Amino acid sequence: MSARRSIFITGGGSGIGRAVAIYFAERGWFVGIADISEHGMADTLGLIEGGFKYSHKLDVRDRKAWDVALNSFSTAAGGRIDAVFNNAGIAHGGPLAEQAENEIEAVLDVDLKGVIFGAQAAYPHLKKTAPGSVLINTASLAGIIGSPNLSVYCAAKWAVRGLTHSLDAEWASDGIKVTSLCPGFIDTPIIEQVSPASNRTVKESLIEAGVEVQPVSEVPKVVWDAVHGDKLDYTVGKTAGRLLRLSRWMPGKVRKEMRARGIGGGD
């Protein structure tokens, strides 16, 4: 088995996945990225110096494809996978009563089923390198609070946190750590989407409302801490951290704030 530690990152063709891939590669890790966008992955690999990098086209909704991707990466990385970053995700918003069936299914398939399939496929690889191996699941601020006009996205991200907490207990005896990443509003392609209700991007609406939008560069250090630390939930940004604390100790205040703001949360 190779001595060089390795991490497999889904959604590595852009946004958080790209930033995390570059960060870990700069610190000597063998980095594998997966995405449905071959062009995006090529751009990410072009930003990583050195030869310890790998890419694999992957639709996270395909359970069998997960096994192929992780087996291939393990071989490329010298027979070890130390961390799997279950990060690929999409978002569709709007009032639930008006949301299209295909949008609902897409969010649940990618953001929930894709994470479950990734965890299932990652298990034998992480068990092999335990203790100290880790599964990081990208949840969201939307997995901490109930956000208007993001009900399906929230349902998926709350479920991801539930899965994380369950697997943390289930895999403890195997020496595998499981944690969730809960970003607030991060400046990624997700918040550049145009809202049908306002005909503006989510980012424009957030800035107008005075809501914190953080650069993606804030995320990799938190993922690094998640790999090396031992907490269940890692937040990114002051808003996410504050609302996680309030949701635990003052849930009524959070409820009132969300009703007053009428805004959603996302990664």
Score class of each variant (00 low, 15 high):
58 L>C: 08
181 L>E: 01
144 I>P: 05
127 K>G: 04
189 P>L: 09
218 E>T: 11
132 G>R: 01
78 G>F: 03
113 K>L: 12
178 V>K: 09
258 M>H: 10
170 E>Q: 14
213 V>P: 05
57 K>S: 12
218 E>L: 02
152 V>M: 11
207 I>Q: 15
102 N>W: 14
28 G>E: 13
121 A>Q: 10
168 D>K: 15
104 I>V: 15
143 G>H: 06
6 S>W: 08
133 S>E: 03
96 L>Q: 07
40 G>A: 11
147 S>I: 06
234 Y>C: 08
240 A>L: 06
94 G>F: 14
17 G>P: 00
91 A>P: 00
103 E>N: 13
238 K>N: 14
206 L>W: 02
14 S>H: 05
38 E>T: 08
195 S>K: 12
143 G>Q: 04
259 R>F: 09
44 T>W: 07
118 G>Q: 04
139 A>V: 10
160 V>W: 04
18 R>T: 14
13 G>A: 12
87 N>Y: 08
257 E>Q: 12
152 V>T: 14
66 W>Q: 11
210 G>M: 11
127 K>S: 09
212 E>Q: 14
78 G>T: 07
226 A>M: 07
54 Y>K: 05
194 V>S: 11
253 K>N: 05
196 P>T: 11
10 T>F: 07
63 R>D: 10
221 K>D: 09
237 G>H: 06
267 D>Y: 01
88 A>N: 09
